Simulated scan of single mutants.
Amino acid sequence: MTNILRIDSSIKGEAAVSRRLTSRIVERLLAAHPSANVVSRDLAQGIRQIDGAWLGSVFTAPEERTAEQAETAREADAILAEVKAADILVIALPVYNFAPPAQLKSWVDHIARRGESFVYTETGPVGLLTGKRAIVAFTSDGTPLGSELDHASGWLRQILGFFGITDVEFVAADRMVFGAEESLARAEAAVEALAA
């Protein structure tokens, strides 16, 4: 069975273009894989930012954790487990001020755990989350995908690759203020052209 993990991150809720695109992408995938299991996580509903207490919790042996540390580690482990179980990740990447939303960065921070998503070797880092595909719904008001102003898509491709996820595709509804209908039409066509 194919496992699909859908990650939304826009603070605009149902009005978000990125959410519209992640819905369309998941629909496209389900048409090809009707028995697929879909897990959804809306980061705009809240995700803890990592801090010293988080670090102490996830890197303390389970039997030595306090009750508070155990709860923090449980939440962090659940986020990581969703990614590990996924065959396909569908990730919303709305661009805020030329960069990814803080809540998407926090989600990545929960996943970036040495020994779980990557290891360091004598020849450099090696990602442990291999064999997965990521489809990213990139949306922006004015930032063109891949431009020198875009500090979001390159970062996400880099960190996913660091985790071993190198099959990464982007569907873009970018520069929306300069022609929303045209941009959305291009994005919808790109969704339809995705190999399912």
Rank of each mutant, 00 (worst) to 15 (best):
Y120K: 09
R157T: 11
T130W: 10
L30I: 10
E148D: 15
A112R: 05
G13F: 12
F98N: 11
A76N: 00
I91C: 01
R186V: 03
F138A: 03
G124L: 10
D51Y: 05
Y120R: 12
R20P: 00
F118R: 05
P144W: 14
P144V: 15
R175F: 10
P94W: 02
A16Y: 08
T123K: 15
V168M: 08
L149C: 07
V191F: 06
G127R: 08
G124K: 10
N3F: 06
S57A: 15
W54K: 06
R113E: 07
H110E: 01
E27T: 08
E71D: 14
A78L: 13
L21T: 01
D87A: 11
I7G: 01
A61P: 02
R133M: 04
A31I: 07
T66H: 09
H151A: 15
A36T: 11
P34I: 14
H151D: 09
S106G: 05
E188R: 02
F163L: 06
P101A: 15
A44C: 09
A173G: 05
T72K: 06
V26N: 08
A86P: 08
L104P: 01
I79K: 00
L93C: 09
V58R: 04
V126L: 14
A32F: 06
P125Y: 11
N3D: 14
S147P: 03
H110T: 00
T121P: 00
R133C: 07
A16D: 05
L104I: 05
V108I: 15
D87W: 10
E63A: 15
I7Y: 00
L55H: 11
S147T: 14
I11C: 09
L5R: 06
A16V: 09
T22G: 07
V38C: 14
G146Q: 08
S147M: 13
F138L: 06
I7S: 05
F170E: 00
T60A: 11
A134C: 04
Q45N: 11
E75V: 11
F170N: 01
F98A: 10
A196G: 12
A134S: 07
R28M: 01
A61G: 05
E64Y: 03
E188K: 05
G161C: 08
F138R: 01
S18H: 03
Y96T: 10
A185V: 04
N97H: 10
A53D: 12
F59N: 13
I165T: 03
G46P: 00
E82T: 11
A16Q: 06
D51A: 08
I88F: 07
I47W: 02
V136F: 01
L128E: 06
E71I: 05
E122N: 13
P94G: 08
T72F: 03
V83S: 09
E182T: 13
K12D: 11
A173M: 02
V58G: 02
T121S: 14
M1F: 13
I159D: 01
D8G: 10
A180D: 02
D77W: 07
K105W: 01
S153T: 09
A73R: 07
R133N: 06
F59W: 13
I159K: 08
A86E: 03
G142E: 09
L129I: 12
